[in-house]
Design a binder for these strands. Structure first.
Lengths: 187, 187
DNA sequence: TCCCTAGGTTAACGATCATTAACCTGGGTG
DNA sequence: CACCCAGGTTAATGATCGTTAACCTAGGGA
């Protein structure tokens, strides 16, 4: 069976993720992005209506994936403690596997067009609330805003991943971050 | 005694911090920044050589302050456990008091001119190493890169502060974040 | 065979911006 | 009093960039 060759749309999306992560959405010109894909400049408009749409597709799809898989893992978990651990593991797994996307997501989401921006914010909020909800089942003494803030802080910890230097192996980083996040959520 | 009225330079710096935090360095034009200060456009060049210099002064000075005070608190602490706690407390105190600066620091430092960028990176590295060093004294089993990654993750947690909604009081947020960070570092 | 269309190309346009030029003004100093 | 200059002003400049226009080409279906 043949290796699935990526469509040009996909190539543009992954290339854009790397470039945006490295220099920011506004720091990458359409011409650069095209060149990095082997085509040049305006050819991008055969695949996307404009530059913001590239960013939008990228961020909306990963927000959706994070939420969908997160929900599935919670549903499959045996109780809130397991659910919290499952969510942490899922997020660190995703973050390690898609470092550029994580960087772009929390640096450049303000550059989105209004509609997509609201959509991403809503998805992210649901994702944070997913963790916050499980956390409150585990620790009923937490008020809702407190649990939300704690969940957000845990994701902040996990999202520091991509900036890490390569002096430590992915496997070690994975267990380190997961155990730190779980400990923080238990505090 | 009269209230210390800020010099125009200072006004520009604090205004720029708020605007950059809200819309990103590239998202704020020189004209907008001037207007927000009550002057207009090119008048900024009477106080700074160019737009990047505003960002540079902002980021270098806060990096220096973080490091200097961090060192002082470590020196004043009674043992590594107290030093870790002091560093966490100092960072959360600073982050809560200077939310826009924290946002700008980890979103826009790549927009700095090369020299300033290197300077900020060096200061930040020393700051992270300060925490990592105390952590290794506390937990000698940690390898140096591991401790560094753990320290970075803890700062990632603490820097999630500014994005938090206002549904929770600063006082509560302060103790929540501090205890989460300390717990994560102990894990 | 003929034509349509998907997916390229280069050239041109218009907006936005950072930066510079040229000019003004009022208050403190020699 | 005369002058200087710090700190403004508006207008102009040049670069960059996103986007559009106009055009080309290969390949597959009627």
């Amino acid at each position: 069976m043949t290796v699935a060759e990526p469509t040009r749309r996909e190539q543009i999306l992954t290339t854009a993720a790397e470039l945006f992560a490295a220099r920011g959405f506004h720091g990458v010109s359409v011409a650069e992005l095209g060149a990095a894909c082997g085509i040049s400049g305006p050819a991008l408009y055969k695949h996307f209506p404009n530059k913001q749409a590239v960013l939008a597709e990228m961020l909306v799809s990963i927000s959706e994936e994070l939420l969908a898989v997160g929900r599935a893992r919670v549903a499959a978990a045996d109780g809130p403690a397991a659910a919290v651990r499952a969510l942490v593991d899922w997020h660190v797994e995703f973050a390690l596997g898609h470092r550029p996307l994580i960087i772009v997501q929390d640096r450049d989401w303000e550059s989105l067009p209004d509609e997509a921006s609201a959509q991403v914010r809503a998805l992210q909020r649901k994702y944070v609330d997913l963790l916050a909800g499980q956390l409150r089942m585990l620790r009923p003494e937490l008020a809702k805003p407190t649990a939300h803030a704690a969940a957000q802080a845990a994701f902040g910890l996990l999202n520091s991943t991509p900036r890490a230097g390569h002096a430590i192996s992915d496997a070690e980083l994975r267990t380190l971050l997961a155990s730190m996040a779980v400990a923080a959520l238990r505090a």
